[in-house]
Design a protein around this nucleic acid. Structure first.
Length: 175
DNA sequence: CTATAGATGCCCT
DNA sequence: GGGCATCTATAGC
């Protein structure tokens, strides 16, 4: 998914940072203990958007990528803004710098206007105006690799990847 | 630049 | 009732 485009209406950004969450096999996944109301989308078919609410105020977005019944998902953690940047600024009035627009999983949801209403959207057909597009840019040969951010169980697993040379990631200095 | 605190509400046990 | 797959402002240097 690195270097693919996340598109929401006129707004779009290039995915430069992701994390893997491996369902019932992963203690950090919302699906670790099996299906619940909140994680239902992750147990559905692949290619759909799983949006969850956290910390009392933030939305975060994942692409479901496991077969139906297998709750694998990829958290989208940062975007390099591509189009609709004025709309992103309007959606994030507190962002002072361009690099604050979408350099975090909740920031990018704010920037693109993604919320719980968008949970379950089909990212392949774009039925609800949100899709992931391949414009031909290759993923990086040697992405940055580290443990996942903001978790406790499973923190040592190297399941965060980012575009090394990108200034748009959530933690540019991390190695 | 780093470190820290506080906001805030929903899910699940 | 505990615990968040986070962000922002502020303080200090």
């Amino acid at each position: 998914m690195l270097n693919k485009l996340l598109v929401r209406g006129e707004r779009s950004g290039r995915i430069v940072e992701v994390e893997a969450y491996r369902g019932t096999q992963d203690p950090a996944s919302h699906a670790f203990k099996g299906p619940t109301r909140r994680n239902a989308t992750m147990f559905g078919p692949p290619g759909h958007l799983y949006v969850y609410f956290t910390y009392g105020m933030h939305w975060c977005a994942n692409a479901v990528c496991g077969a139906e019944g297998i709750a694998m998902a990829v958290l989208i953690r940062a975007l390099a803004p591509v189009a609709g940047i004025d709309a992103m600024r309007d959606a994030r009035p507190h962002a002072r710098k361009e690099t604050d627009l979408a350099s975090g999983p909740a920031k990018l949801c704010q920037a693109l206007g993604i919320s719980g209403d968008d949970d379950g959207a089909d990212l392949v057909t774009g039925d609800r105006g949100i899709m992931i597009l391949d414009d031909g840019m290759e993923p990086p040969c040697k992405p940055g690799i580290s443990g996942r951010v903001g978790i406790r169980a499973g923190a040592e697993l190297p399941w965060r990847w980012w575009v090394r040379e990108s200034v748009w990631v959530s933690k540019p200095a991390a190695h």
